[in-house]
């Protein structure tokens, strides 16, 4: 069953197509949910809510864009709905020393696998993690991030810098390599 057939079937409410969509895309969407949710259980809840939203709104989907990107966006939006924006203020305090660090990321960590990267990113403070995910993985610019998270663009920029420095600190702590 092609993606197009799945979409058409889901738009008509055909159960087999809906089941196929779940089978095929939920692992990829789970990764998205894991990156934005606080923990694994929350990620499962976000995925469940996201899937229901996808099925309810699939008739609005226009095949002009990527279907997977459309679903990913729903997952992100669902995850961010329960996102506590006050974390941006909380995380600023105590982490100022990180800002002074250079933000360039060494390329020598490219050996790290996906699961290891997931674990590392998951250790980022909540606000850093969201901005880092949206910027680095989803490829959104700061304007889009600010609109999505309800923060200013400057906050988004500073959060990204802090996230990169924090990430670097963590990688150094892993002591795999001296920078």
């Amino acid at each position: 069953m092609t993606e197009h057939e799945i979409i058409l079937g889901c738009q008509k409410g055909v159960a087999t197509c809906q089941r196929e969509l779940v089978e095929r895309y939920s692992p990829m969407l789970m990764t998205v949910c894991r990156r934005y949710a606080r923990d694994h259980e929350s990620a499962k809840d976000v995925l469940q809510d996201s899937m229901i939203k996808i099925f309810r709104h699939i008739h609005k989907y226009k095949p002009t864009g990527s279907f997977q990107a459309w679903m990913r966006r729903i997952c992100i939006n669902t995850a961010l709905q329960s996102f506590d924006k006050s974390c941006f203020k909380r995380e600023i305090s105590g982490l100022d020393e990180l800002i002074a660090q250079p933000s360039s990321m060494p390329d020598v960590y490219s050996y790290l696998g996906a699961e290891e990267l997931m674990v590392i990113i998951d250790q980022l403070p909540e606000g850093f993690k969201q901005v880092f995910n949206l910027s680095v993985i989803e490829g959104l610019n700061h304007r889009e991030i600010s609109q999505l998270l309800g923060i200013t663009e400057s906050t988004s920029r500073s959060q990204l810098v802090r996230a990169r420095n924090y990430l670097k600190k963590m990688l150094v702590k892993r002591d795999r390599i001296r920078v």
């Binding site: 692992p27 990829m28 789970m30 990764t31 990156r35 990113i121 680095v136």
Partner: peptide, 11 residues
């Protein structure tokens, strides 16, 4: 690298 690894990584 992160983007490539995690972009479509299935959990």
């Amino acid at each position: 690298h992160i983007r490539r690894k995690l972009g479509h990584y299935p959990s």
